[in-house]
């Protein structure tokens, strides 16, 4: 199984160069933080239709149906083990690393089924970037970290790489901190918050449409968290952001829409103010007010 996957990703890589040009993010190259109003191309970019995900016979995500809009920040909250991370990770198929998993139902990204066997995994993952719970920069220089994605797409020209790196770092609000000597320094020398922003920059460098964030602030101190939240505020103008968080205040602060998961099921999905001030389901209210979970 691994073999076939590898062949698929290898063949996909060749076509990447052209694809990267045609992606609708191209117009953003001049200015990362797009000043265009986000609402302009507001549409359902990810759609789950009766989507279930199984680890062996255990259903971690059960029959979820929801739409994620491209103009919004969507937060997913819920108690531990509720399947929110699994759902997030199935959007760019990171769950494939785990043996004996399978999905049922439909999960569409820009209209194509993510779990279609013919899908180009490399292309999908370039379009759907991901930021992990623990900052995980590669043990390479800051520059090499950010340039990793573009290099995968076959970009070798140093000047172009430099442009992308700068633009991504600016977008991740890290440029001012590393611009002089810092680019050549190892990413491991950065602080935790800086590392997480570097990971965001690295994800942005492949010019994704969607940015998945899996509890991006849980390993950071409040100051670093505040910076990341500011960053999310900035990034939502250009990217669709899906964020999983345990921190209800954070969800309330950064997201436009919130989904509440419990035991693998989607309990409630609504605009954030509504969820937090006037939840429709009792379970949600219990969770938010701390009486449950």
């Amino acid at each position: 199984m691994t073999q076939t996957k590898e062949i698929k990703t290898e063949s996909g890589k060749k076509g990447n160069h052209d694809n990267a040009k045609t992606t609708n993010m191209k117009k953003d190259t001049q200015n990362a933080i797009d000043t265009l109003p986000a609402q302009k191309n507001c549409r359902a970019i990810i759609e789950a239709k009766n989507f279930s995900f199984y680890y062996g016979s255990f259903a971690a995500v059960k029959n979820v149906t929801m739409e994620i809009k491209s103009c919004e920040v969507t937060a997913i909250i819920g108690p531990s083990g509720c399947g929110k991370s699994t759902f997030l990770r199935s959007i760019n198929r990171m769950n494939d690393l785990i043996p004996h998993v399978h999905a049922e139902g439909q999960l569409l990204f820009e209209g194509t089924d993510i779990y279609d066997k013919r899908i180009n995994l490399v292309k999908l993952r370039q379009k759907v970037g991901m930021v992990f719970q623990k900052p995980n920069p590669f043990p390479k220089s800051v520059f090499d970290n950010v340039a990793y994605g573009p290099r995968l797409q076959g970009m070798r020209n140093h000047r172009k790489l430099m442009a992308i790196v700068e633009q991504s770092l600016r977008a991740a609000a890290l440029w001012d901190e590393v611009k002089d000597e810092g680019l050549k320094k190892s990413a491991m020398a950065l602080s935790g918050g800086q590392q997480q922003r570097l990971c965001i920059a690295r994800a942005l460098a492949t010019r994704p449409n969607v940015l998945l964030m899996d509890e991006p602030c849980s390993a950071l101190d409040p100051l670093a968290t505040a910076k990341i939240e500011d960053l999310i505020e900035q990034l939502k103008k250009s990217y669709t952001i899906v964020i999983v968080t345990h921190n209800m205040q954070q969800a309330a602060r950064v997201s436009d829409r919130t989904a509440f998961f419990c035991l693998g099921e989607l309990i409630e999905y609504d605009l954030t103010p509504d969820i937090f001030s006037n939840p429709a389901v009792k379970q949600t209210e219990d969770y938010i007010t701390g009486r449950f979970g």
Binding site: T9, L121, V122, F132, F138, P139
Partner: peptide, 25 residues
């Protein structure tokens, strides 16, 4: 695992991940 995940999430193949990330580390 984070290194590998990060590389795969950026669209690298498993072979490429091994050569460029796992092996140097």
């Amino acid at each position: 695992m984070g290194y590998k995940e990060a590389s795969l999430a950026l669209g690298a193949s498993e072979f490429r991940t091994f050569i460029t990330v796992t092996l140097p580390a």
